[in-house]
Design a protein around this nucleic acid. Structure first.
Length: 282
DNA sequence: CACCATGTTCCTTG
DNA sequence: CCAAGGAACATGGT
């Protein structure tokens, strides 16, 4: 997926297209994508509602819906690994893996999700398990240090734990540790306060620079066009530019941009980790 | 055919 | 009960 920066860029883009508009007919093409809410309840609730706000929390998109004067709902979107959201012409054909779509104004909002790991649902329970926003007030080295104190797991897989902090995924976890010069294998509880300060700053830097980069590049969020349009790793159009910004992710065997040592790839908790064995010592 | 992939949840194990 | 590890989910690219 789309980690936090990609979701942030998507939210900024979609806001301009959907906020203030009313939702028309809703189609749930994949009931799995709206679980644990049933397709019929999803349609019944969302149809006719006005989208009065759209914001991001971690990797979730939060659509504020107003059904009537006193009825409001929160609709959660999550892109999973392959989800995309965009608005297209009524005349355009729906994509092969359309999960949910609905009329919005004179156009069609599409949630497309090839692997169907994502969600578009009314169940807000997942939000309760999320740790602090990395780009919010509550996140800093002190908070990170406190959260890691009792963890008996290496720091890299721990950064993927959304209860510690919410929004970092597999790419930016490796990137943040490289900037902080911390070994991905270091036990979380062994990080000193000052290492947590540096790591927290690195996380903020990596995420905010990714957001900036995504804001700079002209993006085509697809719809009728062929291009992927998103700027995250693996997208068809932008991946060359984007990968330039990554220091270690998917760069096994390439020289570390700080010291020239060959970047190593290891597997932790069944996910790939990339790091410089010289800059990031134990 | 085999293996890998931006994520989360559920089940098992300790 | 909790933490950690692994499988599952589903499809496509290499």
């Amino acid at each position: 997926m789309p980690e936090l920066p990609e979701v942030e860029i998507l939210v900024r883009y979609l806001k301009t297209l959907v906020v203030g508009k009313r939702i028309g007919k809703v189609s749930v093409h994949r009931p799995k994508s709206v679980r644990p809410i049933s397709a019929s309840r999803m349609c019944r609730t969302v149809e006719g509602a006005k989208i009065i706000g759209l914001r991001r929390r971690a990797k979730y998109l939060l659509f504020a819906l107003q059904k009537s004067r006193s009825e409001t709902y929160l609709m959660l979107g999550h892109l999973g690994m392959t989800g995309r959201m965009y608005v297209q012409s009524t005349r355009a054909e729906l994509p092969k893996h359309a999960a949910v779509s609905f009329n919005i104004g004179r156009e069609v909002f599409v949630f497309e999700d090839t692997r169907y790991f994502g969600r578009m649902t009314l169940d807000a329970a997942p939000l309760n398990r999320l740790g602090p926003e990395p780009l919010g007030e509550a996140f800093n080295g002190e908070a990170l240090h406190a959260a890691l104190r009792r963890c008996k797991q290496a720091i890299k897989p721990k950064l993927l734990d959304q209860t510690i902090l919410a929004g970092v995924g597999n790419i930016y976890a490796s990137e943040s540790l490289w900037w902080a010069r911390i070994s991905p294998r270091k036990m979380s509880r062994r990080l000193t306060r000052s290492q947590c300060d540096v790591l927290a700053q690195s996380i903020v830097k990596v995420l905010s620079e990714a957001i900036e980069q995504g804001s700079t590049v002209p993006l085509d969020f697809a719809g009728e066009e062929e291009g992927d349009g998103l700027f995250y790793y693996g997208s068809q159009d932008e991946d060359e530019d984007y990968e330039e910004g990554l220091r270690v992710y998917d760069r096994e065997g390439e020289p570390c941009q700080r010291c020239g040592t060959s970047v190593r790839k290891i597997v932790q908790a069944a996910r790939s980790t990339y790091f410089c064995p010289k800059c990031q010592r134990g």
